[in-house]
Design a protein around this nucleic acid. Structure first.
Lengths: 204, 204
DNA sequence: CAGCAACTGGACTCGCAGTACAGTAAGGAG
DNA sequence: CTCCTTACTGTACTGCGAGTCCAGTTGCTG
């Protein structure tokens, strides 16, 4: 029972590392079982097929990411109670965190899943979708708090602005992957921060 | 000779449509040859392997994309000679174009390639990289022209700002794919436009 | 008519996903 | 102490898709 949890987690760890490095499709089950030191039979005991693995990975990843955002903005809130400054500090922390991550942060998982769409079943795609919608809601809420204090200088769609956080991170990660540079994502976040500063500049 | 060009193009057309719809890995050669009405042998006559196909697709796509940007911003320039307004009009045109594209525009190809990295050889990855660097240069140049007339209100890294055009488009397309909505990319571009408006607001 | 370009078609290898199932070691419930 | 379940191991097999090899065909071209 405990064994089960251990092995399952070990499979997920190994699979996640491999998938982040080279993509889902390029990661063979053979390789995962070798890394986790189990048999092929053992793998299929835990996961019905590769789809089930993808689903479990996504679920775990989304939880981690949410906890990370919770933590990041909680720390930011402690540093400054103003919603705008809290957001700016949170994004700064996010940018710093991204820079410290050597081989690109997990955000990839979302884009990766999105781009291999047909490889996955409906369950996986829905999970992906829900995670992004949750982030939209989260950031939209924060931007509305800000807008209650700072009148935006230009009219903006709050849903789209919420999405822009995810979009800028994902876009930055795409650039980073393709360019094989290491700080594009954090630079993009820093630019997004200057946007917010300009958008919400004078308090009401 | 003409036949060759025809068939090659037909293969590329079919492959591109399939890859955009469901990803490179999920597109089998079997399916491509069925669509192009040739034999498997015929396919391998034109392309050494799937990698060569990917490379050819990317080359073609990058050319099309560059031509598209040339055209878009040339039209924008005709409408307004001021560099800032030219950029704003160009982005508006880009956003409109993206909205009119039913199943996501080719931009995907870049992200798609980036996320299936290890599947491809160095040639493909380098092509991808060069294309993004070319866009960085292109937009950076345009932003410098703008900055010569409009002092930026906040200090920004011009390379990063250039990348932000690609990043916002790619990020928007990731969202669009994952959410199965249809105008996220164009909305993100419109938000980026308001950023530029705010950043370069008062003329020197 | 020779020769090359542009194929067709079939047979084969290989790697990987997934199935099937028989067997086993360890721990708890009765 | 035995029975049962959980968490596996190990092997053997199917099926698919990529990629190779190659012999043969068709059509234009010098």
């Amino acid at each position: 029972m405990d064994q089960k949890a251990d092995t399952r987690t070990r499979i997920l760890d190994i699979a996640e590392a491999a998938v982040l490095e080279k993509g889902f499709e390029a990661t063979s089950i053979e390789e995962i079982v070798a890394g986790a030191e189990i048999s092929r039979g053992g793998f299929f005991y835990h996961f019905k097929d590769k789809n089930a693995l993808a689903r479990a990975m996504l679920e775990r990843y989304i939880e981690v990411e949410n906890a990370l955002y919770d933590d990041l903005f909680a720390r930011a809130r402690e540093l400054n109670d103003d919603p705008l400054h809290c957001m700016l500090i949170g994004l700064k922390l996010l940018a710093e965190m991204l820079e410290e991550m050597p081989t690109g942060h997990p955000g990839c998982v979302i884009a990766s899943t999105a781009y291999q769409d047909r490889l996955f079943d409906k369950g996986v795609r829905d999970l992906n979708r829900k995670a992004i919608l949750a982030w939209r809601k989260r950031f939209r809420g924060m931007f509305e708090e800000i807008a209650a204090v700072y009148e935006p200088r230009e009219p903006v769609n709050m849903d789209a602005l919420g999405d822009m956080v995810s979009g800028v991170v994902e876009g930055g990660l795409v650039l980073q992957r393709a360019l094989r540079e290491h700080n594009n994502a954090s630079e993009q976040i820093m630019l997004f921060r200057t946007y917010l500063k300009l958008l919400f500049s004078p308090p009401k």
